[in-house]
Write a protein that binds this DNA or RNA. Sequence first.
DNA 1: CTCAGTTTTGAATACCCGTTCTAATTGCTG
DNA 2: CAGCAATTAGAACGGGTATTCAAAACTGAG
Lengths: 193, 193
Amino acid sequence: MARPREFDEQEVLQKATEVFWKKGFHGSSMQDLVEAMDINRASLYDTFGNKQHLYLSCLKSYHDINQHELAGVVEGSGSARDRLRGLFILCIERFVDDPDRKGCFIANATLERVPGDPATQQLVCKTVQETEQLFRVIVEAGQQTGEINPALSPKELAQFWTTMLAGLRVVVKINPDRAALEDLMRVAMRVLD
Amino acid sequence: MARPREFDEQEVLQKATEVFWKKGFHGSSMQDLVEAMDINRASLYDTFGNKQHLYLSCLKSYHDINQHELAGVVEGSGSARDRLRGLFILCIERFVDDPDRKGCFIANATLERVPGDPATQQLVCKTVQETEQLFRVIVEAGQQTGEINPALSPKELAQFWTTMLAGLRVVVKINPDRAALEDLMRVAMRVLD
DNA sequence: CTCAGTTTTGAATACCCGTTCTAATTGCTG
DNA sequence: CAGCAATTAGAACGGGTATTCAAAACTGAG
């Protein structure tokens, strides 16, 4: 064999994600990325292809981590309504705790890159479907226990919640206040009655 | 006097808006703008300052047109619920009818430029407040006529609707389907009961 | 008809972009 | 320890970036 890598691929990908997340695709230069990742230009290109490909790798990594975390809440214990609240509170926490106020990387990517970048669009599309599915699982569970009005369409409710979550991801950029965001959630919970 | 301008300021500003709206701030080059506006570089700089300043002028122009249109619906005739629906349907129409799927310029600007560009942030902040105020007017009218549960907080309802509208502005990028968006609106209307 | 005042023109500025190249360095295998 | 193979370093590439400049073109007032 030959000389081994001096860096951990996941580790530097995480650092690149921070840059893209904060500055967007066009707002991040390769110079920014090289400095943040603390690896050489050539290593970057050898390992991650080009800027576009690196961006997608970051987006995928972010998506996987996030979706896994959300799925944990959905599969957790508690009533349907509690798990629904838990989902939102988790997201709100992430937004509010970030001193850089980067919001949601995927939401940012959507508004910057869709339409125009089919690869990003595809990933976002997948994310939306998965998020809807998470909500749907909760709704259907809640309808079985009687917590949620069984006359309502699980699909439409799931889409509503997904939209609401997307809205939070915009609003949080202007008003990153935990209490206000949780108030919003409480109002939105009324559609379940 | 001296030589007069060969172009109409509002007209070329509109063309610049299209570019920024479609490609974002960093995604638009001065070359793109010069070509789209069909004026000379120097004229552009003389009239609009620099790229950042032109961007803000576009954003302000878009904001004014949009807000004026929405205010028209709010001040129009019909029940509170009808006017609420009217507001959403107007926005949905705009999104769905656009072949470029640009979404909402201000939402795009928010996720690309906030935080980091204080001037954009300030304009977005103002827009959010104005939008909330529009919703609030409708809610309070509806509570007087008994269409809307008077026990609910007008402020919180207005914020909820604003968030919902923001959510639509993200979702529409992925699924620009009128029927689906109107379904979302109908679900969201349930919070008023 | 002159000429001051403005706009237009198109080139030029200096710098940053994403990407690639060559050469030097390194660690593992035989 | 020799030699292979991959990684590293840092310069170099052509082209694009936002912005400015000097000169030409133009309009209307005196």
